[in-house]
């Protein structure tokens, strides 16, 4: 790792666990929950956020000395909106089916609080290289939670992963279905996303006592 000093590496690894944007910083929940019924959608969403955050952080950090602080929110929104339009058009061109399942949630990356939060908290005060790493790190932290939630919801809800039947065929009763297993359709509905994230938080905080809130 000659390219990354220890400090730089910390920028990437910190948000993966102990400073996770979703479970600890409580940012970017909106889109995280709505599109996680399938693993594939979660992965695409994570890649989109990774692209927007990495690039957006660099752009904002390059402009940090010329943005007047009074209108900085509008400037930030315009930068994100431009990047999101690129993502949206690319998705519509190359993955049309997916862009339908994601529907308005691609647009909602604009108001994803992780992005605005990192702009405010990091990119406005640090150089482009560090901001880039911070963006990548936080987007990966976001991706980890999305993939975990998407994995469990798709596996338990429809018995598939990335569309491949892992648990056997529910209609022809093969695999575990032969032993009377049934898909839990409830996992596909909106409320279970919240409860799944709640359980992830529970597990994470019981492993690391320092993260427990005093109410």
């Amino acid at each position: 790792m000659g390219l990354l000093s220890k400090k730089d590496l910390k920028l990437i690894t910190d948000p993966l666990a102990d400073n996770n944007p979703i479970t600890i910083q409580v940012l970017g929940i909106c889109s995280a929950l709505a599109i996680t019924a399938e693993l594939k959608a979660s992965i695409v969403m994570s890649v989109a956020v990774l692209f927007v955050m990495g690039l957006g952080n660099v752009v904002i950090s390059l402009m940090r000395n010329i943005i007047p602080s009074k209108i900085r929110i509008i400037v930030q929104l315009i930068v994100v909106a431009t990047l999101v339009i690129i993502v949206d058009l690319v998705l519509k061109a190359f993955a049309y089916e997916l862009s339908k399942t994601l529907s308005v949630f691609v647009g909602l990356i604009i108001t994803n609080c992780i992005i605005m939060g990192r702009f405010e908290a990091f990119a406005l005060a640090n150089g482009p290289w560090k901001s880039f790493l911070d963006g990548i790190g936080n987007a990966l932290g976001y991706a980890v939670i999305l993939v975990i939630v998407g994995f469990f919801r798709e596996l338990l809800g429809s018995g598939t992963l990335l569309g491949i039947k892992v648990l056997g065929d529910p209609i022809e009763k093969t695999g575990v279905y032969a032993y009377g297993y049934e898909n839990n359709g409830f996992m596909l509905l909106a409320p279970m996303a919240l409860i799944t994230v709640g359980i992830i938080i529970w597990v994470q905080r019981s492993r690391n006592e320092a993260l427990i809130e005093d109410n």
Partner: peptide, 14 residues
């Protein structure tokens, strides 16, 4: 204890 604050809020919202 680990559910205090954020965790329980998520589950209640669910």
């Amino acid at each position: 204890a680990p559910l205090r604050g954020l965790g329980i809020t998520f589950i209640i919202t669910g």
